[in-house]
């Protein structure tokens, strides 16, 4: 306590260097906060106009609170605009894609990091190079392949491509975690007469659950937002996901701002919720995926 009072010398804060530092910090904070406002203001505006009718959108200030909030916009697009169907398509296609991506990526990472075989570095290389391939340079053959297989306008085409194109990133995030697992673990498991499959499913998979959660969240976001594959392979309303569904829906209702806003809000809400509860995991996953590349 005494020492603290001794070191606190208010005079020093008046020295030019200290004032400069304070002004500097003030400028820094201002810039950082302006950037934060720039990043979220469009979304706040979106929330506001999703709760207004056209008359209010055109005649009241942009950031006037919607009063009363017109929740009927949401009900309307959910019921009339097919948004409910697109939403459920997104949910189940995303769910299946995430489960299989994470499972198959765990298979591959397990085989590459724990088993002994000659070509494993070549195979790992194939997965890593896959990260850099532009999706568009594979799109035409994929389309004609799915056409031959009668998978065009079938959700399986989207699920398969979702899995294939997210495997490399998922494996990359898993690798670091697998390398850090102690080898004694599987040695003792095998000593106890455990088979490889039991070891994988009962020991390795549970042990990697933190990183599995991380990769599952990242995959969920990427699959939920996937646009090009659905737009190219799926043509009937029955199988469209939210991204393509709302693109078409909005094309028809270009003048109803409230309906458009409500549609967009519904499409981003699951992501915003996931972000609200799991932001640390999302940050961790995106950082791990980017830097190791």
């Amino acid at each position: 306590m005494e020492r603290a009072t001794v070191t606190e010398k208010p005079v020093i804060s008046l020295l030019p260097g200290q004032i400069g530092k304070k002004i500097g910090m003030f400028i820094f904070y201002t810039v950082l906060i302006i950037l934060a406002v720039f990043q979220i203001l469009p979304l706040i505006w979106l929330l506001f106009f999703s709760l207004k009718n056209n008359q209010e959108v055109f005649n009241t200030p942009l950031f006037a609170l919607p009063s009363p909030p017109r929740w009927e916009n949401y009900v309307k697009v959910w019921v009339e605009g097919n948004i409910g169907r697109y939403f459920f398509n997104s949910v189940w296609i995303t769910t299946l894609s995430v489960i299989f991506t994470v499972l198959l990526a765990s298979f591959a990472t397990f085989a590459i990091t724990r088993m002994h075989w000659k070509l494993k570095h070549v195979v790992l290389g194939l997965f890593m190079v896959g990260l850099m391939i532009p999706v568009h340079s594979t799109l035409i053959p994929l389309f004609s392949f799915f056409m031959k297989m009668k998978l065009v306008d079938h959700p399986l085409s989207v699920i398969l491509t979702n899995i294939g194109f997210n495997l490399p990133l998922t494996i990359m995030v898993l690798l670091g975690f697998y390398y850090s697992l102690p080898r004694e673990l599987e040695e003792s498991a095998i000593m106890d007469g455990c088979s490889v499959h039991r070891m994988f499913f009962q020991i390795i998979l549970p042990m990697t659950s933190p990183v599995i959660v991380t990769t599952a969240i990242i995959n969920m976001i990427y699959n939920w937002n996937e646009f090009v594959f659905v737009n190219t392979f799926i043509s009937s309303d029955q199988y469209k996901t939210l991204t393509v569904g709302i693109q078409n829906f909005i094309g028809q209702y270009t003048t109803d701002w409230g309906a458009i806003g409500a549609t967009l809000m519904i499409s981003i809400l699951p992501i915003l919720l996931a972000f609200f509860f799991l932001s640390d995991r999302i940050v961790e996953g995106i950082t791990a995926g980017a830097i190791k590349g």
Binding site: I140, P141, L142, G164, F165, L167, V196
Partner: peptide
Amino acid sequence: VIALYILPPLLLIVALIYIPI
């Protein structure tokens, strides 16, 4: 056992990325 673990993911990226290229 190795084939069982590596082939499904490997075949997927070969079929969906490398052959199309």
